[in-house]
Simulated assay, not measured.
Amino acid sequence: MELNVRIRSVRFTYGLLAALYVLCVILQVYFAGLGVFVDSADLELHRVFANYFEFGAIIMFLLSFFGSIRGGLRWLTLGLFALTSLQHMTIQTFTGVLPALHTVDALLLFWISGYLLRKSWSWLLLRRNGEVQG
């Protein structure tokens, strides 16, 4: 069954955002590494950069409705947003040993965004049927 152009376009955009999200998480880890291992002033780059992609997950969630994207590909985007919000909380709100969750949360962000990219990869390849393979 061939999907209409709107759905294919939305799914392509979703897949593109998933790819960008993975790239941004990788860059965030790199920027953190710069701040820890090179110059602590570089942590500012790590802090500021998060503000540029944190709402990508919400956009992906909204796109899921227009692209008939269901299941985990829809709901895990809200998980990404929640985990991104938790990143801010681990640094700004938590005390004691809880800020160390910042690093574990980053691993979860990488895993979930990678999963979403893998599941939406066929949409980036512009296959005619645009269906996700299990």
Rank of each mutant, 00 (worst) to 15 (best):
L3F: 02
V5W: 00
V5H: 09
R8Y: 00
S9F: 00
S9M: 05
S9I: 01
V10H: 02
R11Y: 01
Y14L: 07
G15R: 07
G15K: 07
Y21T: 15
L23K: 06
V25N: 10
Q28E: 13
Q28N: 11
V29N: 09
F31V: 02
L34A: 10
G35E: 06
G35L: 05
V36F: 08
F37E: 09
V38M: 06
D39L: 02
D39I: 00
A41I: 02
L43S: 12
L45K: 13
H46E: 05
H46D: 04
V48H: 11
A50D: 05
A50C: 00
E54D: 12
F55I: 12
G56P: 00
G56M: 12
A57G: 14
I59E: 06
M60F: 01
F61T: 06
F61W: 11
L62P: 01
L63R: 05
S64R: 09
G67S: 06
S68G: 03
R70Y: 06
G71K: 12
G72S: 11
G72I: 01
G72V: 03
L73F: 05
W75S: 09
W75D: 04
W75C: 09
T77E: 05
L78G: 01
L78I: 15
L80I: 05
L86N: 11
Q87E: 09
T90I: 04
I91Q: 09
T95Q: 11
G96P: 01
G96Q: 06
G96E: 03
L98D: 03
L98S: 06
P99H: 04
L101R: 04
H102T: 07
D105K: 04
A106R: 05
A106Y: 00
L108C: 10
F110D: 03
W111H: 07
S113C: 02
Y115I: 04
Y115N: 06
R118D: 03
K119P: 00
K119Y: 02
S122C: 10
L124K: 07
L125W: 03
L126V: 08
L126P: 09
R127T: 06
R127L: 10
R127H: 08
N129L: 04
E131V: 13
E131A: 14
V132H: 09
Q133I: 12
G134Q: 13
G134K: 13
